[in-house]
Simulated assay, not measured.
Amino acid sequence: MKKHGVLVVVGLVVAVTGWFSLPLLASIPELKLSTARGDVSRGAYLARASGCIACHTDVKGGGAPLAGGAPLKTEFGTFYPPNLTTDVQNGIGGWTLEQFAIALRHGVSPSGDPYYPAFPYEFYAGLSDQDITDLWVAFQTVPPVAQTSTEHQLGFPFNLRRSLYLWQAMFLDERLFAAEPDKDERYNRGKFLVESAAHCAACHSPRNLLGALDSGALYTGGASALEQEGNIPPITAKALTEAGWNELDLGYALKTGVKADGDVFGGSMAEVVREGTAYLQQQDRNAIAYYLFNRDD
């Protein structure tokens, strides 16, 4: 019995030590961006393309821009997109550019807490220094709103935020976006928008039990992470063609929300179009369509 007691104590010590050592898994480098000046217009455009406005603004509830989005109800619990205005107490007004970059690329807050992957930093990790600087200066033009961000409502064990360090160590790929040198400009622009900024795989790909993307089945569709939304359709070239889409129809749908069969997008895709892709230049919507129809599935 005495031996068993010692083993239990040792096990508890190991478990506690491991739990408090999880932050050591976060390999956050000292970050110094290579850009000296940002472009506000380009940053505002990228914020639309990246879904920042759609997610962090409660449009239906009449909320101020970027002051906090509508709740996202998922099987893991309910997530509340936080305030991203320049308010110092409630938003990002007290952040530095480097802290903003670490949040986007590494999923870690200025206080050192890991973010839940409901915030798609696994895709924003591909953004360049210039992209991040442009986004930053654009966010600096947003008026401050003194609206407190609502805490996420998550049950056990998903409320154990420290465990996200382990999730990030297992699943987060922090590689910058890289153009394919043997492909043309339209293809690579579409690739950037689909794979990084617009993070299409976040919804149109299946995920495992821990909420990580199934990298071997990207864009093949799957159950929506949002409650009561059902299944998200595949957007591989083969699936799109079989569903009656072509590049022209898809580019048009990303502007208007009207699908190839004359129906309209519903659910979260309707929001993506209304608050995001409808604001893109036609050449960018066409580049998205071109990439999806020409990428190697």
Rank of each mutant, 00 (worst) to 15 (best):
Y45H: 06
L97K: 11
H204W: 10
E122R: 14
A179M: 10
L97P: 03
G107W: 08
I92R: 11
V264N: 06
G267H: 11
G91V: 11
Q168W: 07
E180N: 02
L72T: 02
Y279A: 00
P233D: 04
Y116V: 02
F265Y: 14
D214H: 04
Q282C: 00
S27I: 10
L226P: 02
V137P: 07
Y165G: 08
R207E: 14
G38A: 09
A270M: 15
K259Y: 05
V142G: 01
N208R: 09
R105C: 05
N246C: 04
H4I: 14
R42P: 00
L22H: 05
A198N: 11
Y187L: 12
K60Y: 02
C203A: 08
G18H: 04
G91N: 10
V194A: 09
L22Q: 08
G18K: 03
S109N: 10
P82Y: 06
E151P: 09
L135E: 02
W95L: 12
P110A: 14
G62V: 08
I235M: 10
D58A: 09
Q99S: 08
S205Q: 03
R162D: 03
K191C: 08
P29R: 12
G244D: 07
F119M: 15
Y121S: 10
E271L: 06
G155C: 06
C52M: 06
A202R: 05
V273R: 01
G257M: 11
N83E: 14
T17E: 03
D297R: 03
G94D: 04
S149G: 13
S128A: 04
R162Y: 09
L240E: 09
V10N: 04
G38C: 08
P157R: 07
D173N: 15
